[in-house]
Write a protein that binds this DNA or RNA. Structure first.
Length: 587
RNA sequence: GCCUCAAUAGCUCAGUUGGAUAGAGCGUCCCCCUCCUAAGGGGAAGGCCGCAGGUUCGAUUCCUGCUUGGGGCACCA
């Protein structure tokens, strides 16, 4: 309908050009918007205000001329000029009603589009280090990444979801060493657990699995392990040096084969746990991309060579290699290979990005936690240094959620190992509430996540409110049978003109907005827009439902209202599905 | 010190390419089931859109400065 009105305006503009009222070289983008106030009709355009200057003409006069030049249309019943020069359009009831038939015909595909034109988009999200279970901060990234991926797919993009597994590097060594030390404790050794080690209870569980698999084979005396290792921080030493020396001890005492065996048990255990956790949360990936595969496959060396050949890498006296990211606006240059010959995590990041581009994606999207925002300049620098246009790259930052129980803030602490995990959150409030709450706010804003509200089964809780609207329609459909009635959609659709109340008109207008909401939410990576829309639609529905009876004696009216109910149900189901939330038939 | 995101009703937040009288929900106050799920609905009150300038027909929206908060950065992923 908006397109139709824009076309009408376009014709009117051309006519005025021919009449010499408007300059022929004038270009205008006609904007048609939904009106907020019903007295302003159904659609409005500010075109006269925008063109007034170029036309050397008062806005209202220009609006008058445009209206006079407007071609006739069956869909438009009335055109007004209002305010400083807005042109308001009133749509015919047939035009407004038409959406109901559309929805019933298109069912789950109502709202989908092809604006993405099958462009290939790669989305990387969560990518938390496999050093422990996901916590509630990761949960928001997971819900957000999964939802924008699904939204993009819904509007015609070819979406490829990836989780980058940091399965190489120091953090993983710390994990493996932590597991080993707990294993030694289980075996009866008494030792001082390093302050920088991973202390969560899950480490002990993994240690028991190591015991199952290796038996006594990995036992060394605590005396041998700590012999020659410098002091830990609480005893006046440096905790980083302390843990690094313990890692070295683990490798030398166990030998490379046993060490890697231990390492892999820890890695796989946590990775499976994360994968399982996310799957239960309705989050699935096309690929779990291993960092080790980049190192071992030579991708890291290859991409560094690429940058080196392009002159973006320099070597310092100590032998370390640096990427000149300052040439692309970064604050400082970045080390890619340390003096000890080890490549940095950043070197892997470069290799991974290069790998993504080589796979030919049209768009590469990173969803980061907000604490990683300092990464953006260097990532953009890499993109340019590799010779790819920045337009292919996109970043979205997800802020952390702060948990509350009512008004009381839930304390979280990663250090003590007593953080709130995503799994704990899901167990407490359920997947539906968690998925919905996470994406119901703009992603780059902090959000307060009220656990009590998320659990409450009342109208205060938007998830239940929306789900209840869906269940209500289903309930009405079930009630039909009790009256020995049947839903006659054809009869209803043929008599939509019986739905002449403002309640019903508002509902249909809301239904008609869905495809546009969906498209904007997807293209702007803003799932909260869809969440808000579903709440609004539910509200319109409840208002109508409360005011007018669906199961009327009058068969024609009854079926007309049933078609509208079913259309609402369908759109709610479609929208909730995209948010990863169930649409229950009864509650 | 630099970067970044924010600042809208008592609270939590919308406001998408600059538009008409700035919107929801909660909370407060009032009201509505002999009726399809009251797990719902209606109404009232509540605002210098952080402050000060600028751009123009018009600014909550764009630009600059300031104030106040969140977060990040000092070969650590």
């Amino acid at each position: 309908m908006k397109e139709h009105i824009a076309e009408l305006i376009g014709v009117a503009i051309d006519t005025l050009k021919q009449q010499g009222v408007l300059p022929t070289d004038l270009t205008a983008r006609v904007m048609v918007e939904n009106t907020k106030d019903k007295s302003h009709g159904d659609f409005a355009t500010n075109i006269a205000l925008m063109l007034a200057k170029q036309a050397r003409c008062a806005p209202r006069d220009l609006a008058q001329k445009l209206v006079e030049a407007l071609p006739k249309s069956d869909s438009v019943t009335q055109v007004d000029i209002a305010g400083p020069g807005f042109i308001n359009f009133f749509a015919s009831s047939e035009t407004i009603n038409a959406v109901v038939g559309q929805i019933l015909a298109q069912k789950e595909s109502y709202g989908l589009s092809q604006v993405g034109a099958k462009q290939r988009v790669q989305v990387e999200f969560v990518s938390a280090n496999p050093t422990g279970p996901l916590h509630v901060g990761h949960g928001r990234g997971a819900a957000y990444g999964a939802t924008i991926s699904d939204l993009l797919a819904a509007v015609g993009f070819d979406v490829y979801r990836e989780y980058y597994v940091n399965d190489a590097g120091r953090q993983m060594d710390i994990l493996a060493t932590s597991v080993w030390l707990r294993y030694l404790e289980l075996s009866g050794e008494r030792l001082e657990f390093p302050s920088n080690g991973y202390k969560g209870e899950y480490i002990r569980e993994i240690a028991r699995k190591v015991q199952d698999q290796f038996g006594q084979a990995l036992i060394k005396s605590a005396k041998d392990v700590f012999d020659g290792v410098s002091a830990d921080e609480p005893k006046g030493g440096d905790k980083e040096i302390h843990i690094d020396e313990l890692i070295a001890k683990a490798k030398s005492l166990l030998g490379i084969v046993n060490y890697e065996g231990l390492f892999d048990i820890a890695l796989n255990d946590i990775r499976w746990d994360i994968e399982d956790d996310l799957a239960e949360f309705g989050v699935r990936y096309q690929k779990w991309f291993s960092e080790r595969s980049l190192t071992r496959g030579g991708d890291v060396e290859k991409s560094l060579k690429l940058l080196q050949d392009a002159g973006h890498i320099y070597e310092q006296e100590d032998g370390a290699l640096w990427f000149r990211s300052t040439a692309f606006g970064d604050d400082k240059d970045r080390c890619v290979r340390r003096e000890n010959g080890m490549t940095t995590y950043f070197a892997s990041d470069i290799a991974y990005m290069n790998n993504k581009f080589e796979r030919g994606f049209d768009k590469v999207l990173y969803v980061f936690g907000a604490d990683h925002h300092g990464y953006l300049p260097r990532m953009k620098a890499v993109c340019q240094a590799l010779g790819y246009p920045l337009e292919k790259l996109d970043f979205r930052l997800v802020q952390f959620a702060i948990l509350y129980r009512g008004t009381e803030r839930v304390q979280m602490s990663t250090r003590s190992g007593s953080f709130v995990t995503l799994r704990e959150l899901r167990d407490e409030v359920g997947n539906d509430a968690a998925r919905f709450f996470y994406v119901s706010r703009k992603s780059d804003q902090h959000m307060d996540f009220d656990l009590d509200l998320a659990k409450s089964q009342s109208k205060d809780n938007p998830v239940y409110y929306i789900q209840y609207a869906h269940a209500r329609v289903c309930s009405v459909m079930r009630k039909l049978a009790e009256h020995q009635w049947q839903f006659d959609a054809a009869l209803g659709l043929a008599n939509l003109d019986r739905l002449d109340s403002d309640y019903e008109k508002n509902l249909m207008t809301a239904l008609a907005r869905y495809p546009e909401i969906l498209e904007n939410a997807a293209l702007n990576y803003e799932p909260h827009a869809l969440a808000l829309y579903l709440k609004d639609l539910s509200s319109e529905f409840h208002t109508w439902y409360n005011a007018l009876k669906v199961l009327e004696e009058d068969e024609v009216l009854r079926n007309a209202r049933l078609t509208l109910s079913d259309a609402v149900r369908q759109v709610l189901a479609n929208g909730l599905g995209l948010l990863g939330v169930q649409a229950p038939e009864e509650m």
